[in-house]
Every structure is written in C-alpha cells, then in structure tokens.
C-alpha cells in the first residue's frame, strides 16, 4: 500500500520535473515588490520568499534541476564507486590495495575542496556540478561496496562457482551482484539524500552554480535566513524534500 503511494508520488515528481516550469502560476524569477516574504495567501498559494518570488512556482520550476542533478550525481557516485568496490577484491592483493589507494585518496579530499577545484577547472556548469557532487560520494560508496563484496566472496556459492572454473567477471556479474543488492540499494538511498542537499552546500561556499535559479536545496538554505519572519519557505521546501527522501527509500527497499 505505502509502496503504491510512494510509486505514484515518484511518478508525479517526474512529471513535475519535466512539466513543472509550465505549470507554475508565476514566473519563478519575478520579484513581487509588494509581497516580500509573505505568508501563504490566495494569490501566492505557498507564500513568497525573501525577494518576493512565488514559492509554489519556484518549487515547481526547480523540480527538474533539483531531481536531475541529484539523480545524475547519484548515478555517477554509485556507478564509479560501485564498480570500484566490486572489482577491487577480485583483483588480488595488489590490485585491491591499489584501488583502495584511489578510494582513500578521494576520501581524503574534503568535499568542499574537491568541489572548488572541479568547478574552477571545469567551469561553472550543471555538468561540473554533477561531477563535483557525485565524485565526493565515490570514495565512501566504493569502500562500502568493497566491504560487502569481500564478505560475499567467502560464501559457499562463490566457492562453488570458482570450483566450476567461472571467470572473475562472470562471478562479479552473476553472483556478487545478487549478494550486494541490499547494500547497494541502501547506499543508493543514502547517496541520493546527500546529493540532494550537497549542491546547495556549494552555494554556501560561494562556488555554487546558477545563483537564484530555483533549486530546492538552495531554497531550504535561503529559508533559514528568513526563518523568523517567513518560516513557510523553509517548512514547505523541507516537507517536499522529505517526501522525496521517503518515497525514494521506500521504493528502494523493495
């Protein structure tokens, strides 16, 4: 039952992500000069933000960018990190240690520093943002997946497969995949949550991309500075983000 609701909600979100900007009642960038930081009303369904922009419209218009960046950076993190984590234990002691070396080097770079470097080198673009946010989660994902893969390699069925002369890539593809599924799924959920908030974290450092372009994480952060006078901005954005987190994690669990 809850699964069905989660699924429907996710489909809705995808719809909003694609068509949200068209559904918005107002231009998400327009300042309504006479309605700054206003509470929800009939004209502004979810109120306005600190610069007088319609919150409802900004939430709708920001869905695509928010979910897109988080989804792509999650894919990047899980793709690279997961692959590294699965392959490492299969490569023997030296190969394993070498890949761990790469994972740890990535982990040693504080995410903010990594983002600053990447955004300077790649230029300020959404692409660079996806890479910066995604890469910062690669090290952790790789370590977690490597841990599980190692323990699976000790399972009887892997022994059996080895005994039958299966090649390492066959073992990786057929057997390990099944064993790491729960961890990989959980990790996917965790990384998605972190990515959802991290691109806004870069704005905090001043290296964010697209100042003022509607994005939920950034709206949540902006809502904090006007929390006393206009708490609705943070509350509505927060509830929306929470619903995404709940829905995504609910789906992954199945």
């Amino acid at each position: 039952m809850t699964r069905k609701i989660a699924l429907i909600w996710l489909v809705c979100l995808c719809g909003i992500a694609i068509f949200g900007a068209m559904l918005a009642p107002y231009d998400p960038m327009t300042n309504h000069e006479n309605a700054v930081a206003q509470a929800p009303s009939l004209t502004h369904f979810l109120g306005t933000d600190g610069l007088g922009r319609d919150v409802f419209s900004r939430l709708l218009a920001g869905a695509g960018r928010t979910l897109g960046i988080s989804a792509f950076s999650t894919l990047l993190a899980i793709g690279i990190g997961g692959t590294m984590g699965i392959i490492a234990p299969l490569l023997g002691k030296f190969g394993d240690s070498s890949l761990v070396l790469v994972m740890n080097t990535l982990l040693a770079f504080p995410p903010l520093l990594m983002a600053l470097i990447l955004l300077t080198l790649l230029g300020r673009s959404d692409m660079a943002l996806i890479v910066a946010v995604g890469i910062s989660q690669v090290g952790m994902t790789a370590q977690v997946i490597r841990g599980v893969t190692r323990s699976i390699l000790g399972e009887d069925y892997i022994l059996g497969a080895r005994a039958c002369g299966a090649r390492w890539w066959h073992i990786a593809w057929v057997h390990i995949r099944r064993g790491i599924a729960p961890t990989l799924g959980a990790q996917l959920g965790v990384v998605f949550c972190y990515c959802l908030f991290n691109s806004a974290g870069l704005n905090f450092l001043g290296v964010g991309v697209g100042i003022g372009v509607p994005e939920w994480g950034a709206m949540l952060a902006e809502g904090r500075s006007i929390f006393r006078t206009a708490p609705h901005v943070a509350i509505f954005t927060g509830l929306l983000l929470m619903s995404v987190v709940i829905a995504v994690n609910r789906i992954i669990d199945d």
Partner: peptide, 16 residues
C-alpha cells in the same frame, strides 16, 4: 561578486 554583504540577493534583484 563574492557572497558577502548580501551581494547574492542584491545581484538577483539587479538581474531581475
């Protein structure tokens, strides 16, 4: 601009 003195907010209003 740098993110101090509420420059990001000011810049957004100018942009608009």
């Amino acid at each position: 601009f740098a993110p101090w003195n509420f420059m990001p907010e000011t810049a957004q209003l100018i942009q608009e």
